[in-house]
Design a protein around this nucleic acid. Structure first.
Lengths: 162, 162
DNA sequence: ACCAGATAGTTTCATATGAAACTATCACCG
DNA sequence: CGGTGATAGTTTCATATGAAACTATCTGGT
């Protein structure tokens, strides 16, 4: 039996044209480019910055809200918040009505950092998007929405294969 | 001094419309959906599968080649390869000409796994992309190429801000 | 031939991460 | 009220990760 009989049936995966791989590369490069700035300047980790980003936009959220909003898990949020509270960048207060929930918000110190990081993040986003025309930007957003919706609704159930 | 004087200058970042954030969500969901399958079925980690994916496409690569090709760092590659060699899914041979270099390739066992995972990965990609028309897919690829190029060529230098 | 880098790959060590267990509070039902 | 199950958040523990140090080999200049 010739040794190359099986050659015919080998399907190959070209990573350069494989969407999940391309997304991963692009996403990591974009995040890293921005993270480098706020990490250098303020010693913020990615989870920390994400928490600050949502609190800057919506103060008074609970840890659970933050987790949902950022797609982080609650352990990650808990730790990021602990570290931010420690650095007096975030304030943690008990909820009036429900003793389990904590209300989170930026302190003045945290707000000052937020106010500095946001323009920088927006500037870098703008630098990235300079590669596209306004029309292309709209299209990209639309296509990403479609894909995100699609993938979110797939309900990947552990243990089931199809 | 009124306590809300600073309100006017607060710029806010809307995460839902912030490209790096959207990319991150989309990328993670896509990768996780696929990873779950090969992880359940073969106990492969993401780095392990990435190594196998490039070796299936291009056998005989060195660890360094694999690292460059997958955007993983060399430590990660070293460990993934060690574990794969251990499981007899990858074969490691010394280079003829250069004693430092190792030539990596899939074993028959590794190839069998590759042959099973590839169609599954392509199928899931197809499921994702079913959200888009053929024309939209081409457009998405084009836009992602532009963005990736742009970001890659930014040369983010630590310590410089603009 | 020899020495001073450079390069491939591994190991060490300190930190980051997430699943599961845990604590505290709440909400519902008898 | 009293107890059973849900929920918010933290802690524990085992694993994953990456920067830096290390080993082994190569290359290029003298």
């Amino acid at each position: 039996m010739p040794s190359d009989v099986k050659t015919l049936e080998h399907m190959t995966l070209d990573l350069d044209h494989f969407l999940p791989y391309r997304l991963s590369i692009l996403s990591n490069r974009a995040s890293d480019a921005i993270a480098q700035h706020y990490s250098d300047r303020f010693g913020l980790s990615v989870p920390e910055w994400r928490v600050m980003a949502v609190l800057g936009q919506t103060p008074g959220m609970s840890a659970r809200d933050v987790a949902q909003r950022t797609a982080m898990d609650k352990v990650q949020v808990s730790r990021a918040v602990a570290s931010l509270v420690d650095a007096r960048r975030v304030k943690r207060e008990g909820d009036e009505a429900d003793g389990r929930v904590t209300r989170l918000s930026l302190t003045a110190k945290g707000q000052a950092i937020y106010d500095e990081v946001v323009p920088l993040a927006l500037h870098l986003e703008e630098v990235f998007l300079a590669a596209l025309t306004p029309d292309e930007r709209r299209t990209l957003n639309r296509l990403m929405d479609k894909l995100t919706d699609r993938i979110s609704h797939l309900h990947v159930i552990p243990g089931r294969s199809e």
